[in-house]
């Protein structure tokens, strides 16, 4: 069953008031590369209406604002991949968005959709997470829209489930502009047989002190490593405590990530043991790259 109405609101207010009116009978669509497929494949109940948020003015904007890089929820993966601003300030995000699907998918798939779809292995999400991103949640209170910024992780509930209510949507994401001596990177391992999502993806960001050897900030995102996108906080603590970011620190961080991550075997996709190994491989690829970028910055 297809939808009976397709709305193209011009503003967040309009979108959310429509959404509220349908009281669950409508859903937001952006690129549609998750939602429409789910509907087509019978994994999503029929909807009365779709509310397309990509027609909302400026919802696809990518800009620098007062110490933050702000990305509209409707920014496409292609736009993010190509944005000089994001390449400079958030290489991990640019890299993670650049591997999603093919160009045709990236031309329409949005970062908002990637996050809202709430899969623990979604690539753009993993990139954002390592950049300490925040999400702007917009709420329709019956008369007007109120928007608040909150930590990205706060909106995930479980695989495929976010915390957004039927009167809410994502307006934007933001992450701090790149600090001095800071760098980030992303990489992933794919399976050649079936399924577009990665076996494992890892993004990391580090900020170094003046010596260029010690970390003063570190963040590591891994997916899938639990029901929601995962921050390897214990590894981050180890990196921050390490006198220098050398092999020993890296290996200890890997060990900690492997212990903290809740890995599982997904049928026909990857075994737990394999994912365990891949945490090490990807951290060995991603962390040195992030550090090198930090040193070069």
């Amino acid at each position: 069953m297809r939808w009976q109405a397709y709305h193209t609101p011009q503003s967040v207010d309009e979108a959310l008031s429509l959404l509220s009116q349908y009281a669950g009978g409508a859903q937001i669509v952006a690129g549609g590369t998750d939602l429409i497929l789910d509907m087509q494949q019978g994994n999503h109940s029929a909807l009365q209406a779709l509310i397309d948020v990509t027609t909302i003015r400026d919802l696809d904007q990518i800009r620098e604002d007062n110490g933050w890089i702000v990305i509209g929820a409707a920014a496409t993966h292609a736009a993010i991949e190509a944005s000089p601003l994001i390449r400079h300030h958030g290489a991990a995000l640019a890299e993670s968005c650049s591997v999603v699907g093919g160009p045709q998918v990236r031309n329409v798939a949005t970062i908002g959709g990637n996050v809202a779809h709430a899969l623990p292995a979604a690539d753009g999400t993993i990139g954002l997470l390592a950049l300490n991103a925040e999400v702007q949640v917009c709420t329709w209170n019956g008369a007007a829209v109120e928007c608040t910024w909150q930590p990205l992780l706060s909106i995930f509930v479980g695989p495929g489930k976010n915390r957004l209510a039927a009167n809410q949507m994502i307006g934007a994401f933001r992450f701090p502009v790149r600090a001095l001596r800071s760098g980030s990177a992303f990489d992933r391992i794919m399976r050649p047989q079936g399924v577009a999502l990665p076996i494992l993806g890892v993004a990391a960001q580090v900020t170094l002190d003046e010596s260029g050897r010690r970390a003063v900030a570190a963040s590591i995102a891994v997916g899938p490593a639990g029901p929601i996108p995962f921050r390897a906080t214990e590894s981050e603590t180890i990196l921050l405590g390490a006198p220098t970011l050398d092999e020993t620190a890296l290996e200890r961080a890997i060990d900690a990530a492997q212990r903290q991550a809740e890995l599982r075997t997904s049928k026909h996709r990857a075994s737990k043991e394999y994912r365990h190994e891949m945490i090490a491989v990807l951290l060995r690829r991603v962390l040195p790259k992030a550090v090198a970028r930090a040193q070069a910055a």
Partner: peptide
């Protein structure tokens, strides 16, 4: 399912998979 690319057309200069592209987009 936007997988094979046979349906690729160009909308306002960008290529898209028209098989899952809502017409009203």
């Amino acid at each position: 399912e936007a997988e094979c690319g046979a349906c690729t057309v160009i909308v306002n200069g960008r290529s898209v998979n028209s098989c899952i592209y809502p017409a009203f987009k």
